[in-house]
Structures are given as C-alpha cells and as structure tokens.
C-alpha cells in the first residue's frame, strides 16, 4: 500500500483479475533489487494492464493505444538515469504496438516491459487478441478463433531483447525474481505474465471462476528446460496447449541509450544534456 496512490483507490480491476498479483510481484522484485520507487518512471498504453501505473506513486505516462514503448524510448534517451518500466497487455504490445515492441528489442534499449498477457481484450469487453489460443471464444470470434497466436516471448527473443522470461500468475515468486533481474538488466527486458481474465476470457471459455483459470495455468505450465527436452526428443506434440514458463534469454549486449550518450560525449566532449528545457541560456 505504501507504493500506491491511496486517493485513487478503489481500482477499476474486476474481482479475480491477475493485475494485483503482478503488481505485488513487481514491488517485491523492485525491493529485493534494492530499487527505490523514486528511481522508477512508468509508461503504459491502453487496456486494463495499462491502468496499473496510474495507481502507483511515481511519475507515469498513460499514453495512446500501443505506443507506450515509443514514449518510453524518448523518456529513457532524454534522461537515462530514469529506470523506465512499461506496463502493457497482449493487445497493446503485440497487436497495435507490435512494431514498437520488436524495434525496442532490436535496439536493446534499457526498458523493463511487463506484458500482462490475458489472451483477450478485457477493457472493450472480450474480443480475441493476437495471443488468444486457437479455438478460443471471444465476442469477435463467436465460433472460436482460427487465427494462430503469437508466441510473444520467442518473438521478442528473436527481435534481439537481452532478457526475456515468461511466468503465469500462479508463480508470483519466480515472477518477482524475473522482474528483479529485468530491472537490473542494462538492456531491453521483457517479462510476459500469462494472467487470468475471468470476466471476459474465462466466462466464454468454460473457465468461469478465477480459480478455474489459475487451475488451468497450474495444469498447463511447463518449465522451459522440460519443454526444450521434449522438443529435442521429438515429442513436440506434447506441448500443445501448454504454457512454457521460465527464462528465454539472459544475455547482455550493447545498450541503445548508452550508445546515444556516448556519441554525444564523443562529438562534443561533454556529458549528454538532460533537463535542458529548463535552461535560459545554451551554448550554441
């Protein structure tokens, strides 16, 4: 509670939503890494998960649909001292914002993106998303979707991110540990959290209660190492319907805002300008 804007409570999330568990894991990860909330700035787009930063007592930009990562890019390059965290969802990050997601991963810009993947558009009332499993029902797929979903974590690894992990809301400790690593990683970090939307996904897909939903996560979650072994043994079919969890990559490489700062240091011999809008005189 000490991290929340008490004057904004109660929040808008439905009973049984995974957002609370995830935010709690975020604060645990942040504390265990010894990071003060003062160092953090949050950015989000549009959707249920994007409403999280508005409840947290830190500077935050609640932006347009899909564009959070591009706003975060300007914020981070403008002031590299900020620890910039993006809260986003599957529709926000992977559909309308898919291009920004892969380009930020390609640049390896030091952002921590927490993508709450509930496989549905919750805010607008239950339309299918780019991560909805094949066959699942949404208001825009009343007969079950035939679209193939994105494997988001694999996509972001392929695009060049330096830290990627996926967990579900039934693994809050592993999740907070990954968030800790993500906050500490000097590069693009992507933490995908498979979360429950009992209101709009569960009700339509025979998982009526939050308990049914998290039970399904428990039954279907399989560790990445085990999954890799199944694939190596040619038993890929056993992974159908499973949620592969764990770390997908943890490999440091050159970071974008550092490169921008170093270039300016090299070209003008001075530190990269920050907060220069407040100066009344500038050297030309």
């Amino acid at each position: 509670m000490k991290y929340l804007r008490k004057d904004r409570l109660p929040n808008i999330f439905c009973p049984g939503c995974g957002n609370g568990t995830i935010l709690n894991s975020f604060f645990r990860g942040m504390e265990s890494e010894g990071i003060d909330l003062k160092e953090i700035a949050m950015v989000s787009g549009i959707g249920c998960s994007s409403r999280i930063p508005g409840y947290v007592k830190c500077d935050s930009l609640h932006t347009t649909h899909g564009r959070a990562i591009s706003f975060a890019t300007g914020l981070k390059v403008g002031n590299p001292d900020l620890n910039v965290v993006v809260f986003t969802g599957d529709g926000d990050a992977a559909s309308i914002g898919g291009n920004h997601l892969i380009h930020a991963a390609r640049r390896n810009i030091n952002l921590t993106v927490i993508c709450i993947n509930n496989t549905i558009y919750g805010m607008t009332g239950g339309q299918i998303s780019p991560t909805s499993p094949e066959g699942s029902i949404g208001t825009t797929a009343p007969y079950g979707t035939r679209d193939k979903p994105f494997n988001l974590s694999e996509l972001v690894v392929a695009a060049g991110a330096s830290y990627v992990a996926r967990w579900t809301t039934i693994q809050p400790l592993q999740l907070s540990n990954s968030i800790k690593k993500a906050l500490n990683n000097p590069g693009f970090s992507f933490v995908e959290v498979v979360s429950q939307c009992p209101t709009y996904f569960g009700r339509k897909n025979k998982l009526r209660t939050p308990v049914d939903m998290v039970k399904s996560f428990k039954e279907n979650a399989i560790n990445k190492r085990k999954a890799d072994k199944l694939i190596a043994d040619g038993k890929e079919d056993e992974l159908i319907g499973k949620i592969i969890v764990g770390e997908f990559i943890n490999k440091k490489r050159a970071e974008f805002s550092d490169n921008v700062c170093n270039l300016s240091k090299q070209q003008c011999g001075e530190e990269h300008a920050t907060k220069s809008a407040y100066l009344s005189k500038l050297e030309y």
Partner: peptide, 13 residues
C-alpha cells in the same frame, strides 16, 4: 511518441 516522452524527461524536443 518518443518526442512526447523526451519532453516529459525535461528536454525540448
């Protein structure tokens, strides 16, 4: 988007 983010970081953008 980046320009708006940079502006809130304290830069003229």
């Amino acid at each position: 988007g980046a320009v708006i983010g940079a502006s809130w970081s304290g830069m003229k953008a």
